[in-house]
């Protein structure tokens, strides 16, 4: 474990908690893409299948359970409890256009052709594009609540910090995983225009609104 990976995990945890609290406290999921949240729940489910068979550390197990629990709790709040506030008219990104190609790619490009490894690879690829429905929804509505922008910033930073963690592990632990690195680069690049808007607008106290 290095500081970059720990910072990344904490940023990821913060994002997940901020989103859950935002929906719970405001009792509304306006502006939140339910499709992205379903994709994230799928990412954690397919990545943490070895949760009970492959013990790494108490930290690893606890964090995985928190991620899984919060992901499903968020999906539940969006599609069940606060369904009335779900903005389905703007959450129209075709998620199947992500899941199917990612599923095919996981079959073709992986480290080992075994069920667990293919599912892990699927989760890595899917995570890199899972935020697209959310970004698409913001581009359609033309704006985002400030709390939602903080959620997205923390979520985007988590994988950016992981990229630094992989550089660190390459030099100090001779550790290298091309699949995770390439997918992590794609994932972080997708946030770049949001990062620009976040830093130039939200941090200046303005509301995030896209030129319609």
């Amino acid at each position: 474990m290095n500081i970059f990976r720990l910072a990344g995990d904490l940023s990821h945890l913060a994002a997940i908690i901020v989103l859950l609290l935002k929906i719970w406290k405001t009792r509304s999921c306006a502006g939140i893409s339910g499709k992205s949240q379903i994709l994230f729940a799928l990412v954690f489910t397919t990545r943490y299948l070895d949760l009970f068979t492959n013990f790494i550390s108490p930290y690893n197990t606890v964090m995985k359970m928190i991620y899984l629990g919060c992901a499903y709790a968020t999906v539940y709040l969006i599609y069940m409890k606060f369904k009335a506030t779900y903005d389905g008219n703007h959450d129209t990104f075709r998620a199947e256009f992500l899941v199917v190609p990612v599923g095919g790619l996981a079959f073709l490009v992986n480290h080992e052709f075994s069920p667990l490894e293919i599912l892990w690879t699927f989760s890595i690829y899917l995570e890199s594009v899972a935020i697209l429905p959310q970004l698409f929804m913001i581009s359609k509505t033309g704006e985002a609540e400030t709390i939602t922008t903080h959620y997205l910033f923390a979520l985007g930073m988590y994988r950016a910090l992981y990229l630094i963690n992989w550089i660190w592990r390459y030099y100090f632990e001779n550790f290298f995983d091309l699949i995770a690195i390439v997918a992590g680069c794609v994932q972080t690049i997708l946030y770049c225009d949001f990062f620009y808007l976040y830093i130039t607008k939200v941090l200046q106290g303005k509301k995030l609104s896209l030129p319609a």
């Binding site: 991620y67 390459y170 290298f176």
Partner: peptide
Amino acid sequence: ILKRLLKDEL
């Protein structure tokens, strides 16, 4: 270069 040996990352 060691490929990913075990999934020790989240």
